[in-house]
């Protein structure tokens, strides 16, 4: 037996053992035996057709890879853990993920100055920071003014409306 074929056989068997682990032993034994039988039949048939061992190995691995999705679905169908427990686990994991995300964002926020006058709670500004680029040198075209490796981030602050324009200087007639 060629090494490629031996590896392919080992991989298919190993994967079958992995996705059937922990289920009803009778169902597991049946699936393992069926796959083993299929591997043998396929190998014999391919050998009689004169296929190279490497080609047989590739076809075996392709049959394995294309069926992974169904293997996993089959595994879910034969789950031994009750669905309610799975659901509770998923909700807990989701809540923990949100909490972790919040902690990470908070930690990042403490290292940088606030992004806007609104304060640290401005999540929109944090997720969509305003990027600004250095002013173009005189006569430069657009592509050359954009930095290639890094961008300068400018924190835009809103300080309210601009001050009103100064009143016009009093004319000589007014003075009189």
């Amino acid at each position: 037996m060629s090494p490629a074929l031996a590896i392919a056989l080992a991989l298919v068997r190993a994967w079958t053992r992995v996705y059937t682990a922990g289920i009803d032993p009778a169902i597991r034994a049946r699936r393992l035996a069926e796959i083993d039988s299929d591997l043998w039949e396929f190998h014999e048939d391919a050998r009689h057709r004169g296929l190279w061992p490497a080609a047989i190995a590739i076809l075996m691995l392709l049959r394995l890879a294309l069926g992974v999705h169904d293997d996993l679905c089959w595994r879910i169908e034969h789950r031994t853990v009750p669905f309610d427990l799975v659901r509770s686990g998923l909700w807990t994991a989701a809540a923990a993920s949100i909490a972790l995300l919040w902690l990470v964002i908070s930690a990042l926020q403490t290292r940088e100055p606030p992004l806007s006058p609104v304060g640290t709670g401005n999540i929109v500004r944090m997720l969509y920071p305003v990027h600004a680029y250095p002013a173009a040198p005189p006569g430069a075209t657009l592509p050359t003014m954009l930095p290639t490796s890094s961008a300068v981030v400018v924190h835009v602050t809103f300080k309210g409306a601009p001050p009103p324009p100064p009143p016009p200087p009093a004319s000589s007639d007014d003075r009189r």
Binding site: V12, T16, R31, E34, I35, S37, D38, E41, F42, D45, L59, L62, R63, L64, A65, L66, G67, V68, H69, D70, D71, C73, W74
Partner: peptide
């Protein structure tokens, strides 16, 4: 199982047979 995969493959004139997981499921 293999006989079925082979018959389906022959009918479709395909060298690649139905995947293990898909067929047995």
């Amino acid at each position: 199982g293999y006989q079925i995969a082979k018959t389906i493959g022959d009918a479709a004139e395909s060298r690649l047979l139905t995947a293990y997981g898909t067929l047995y499921r």
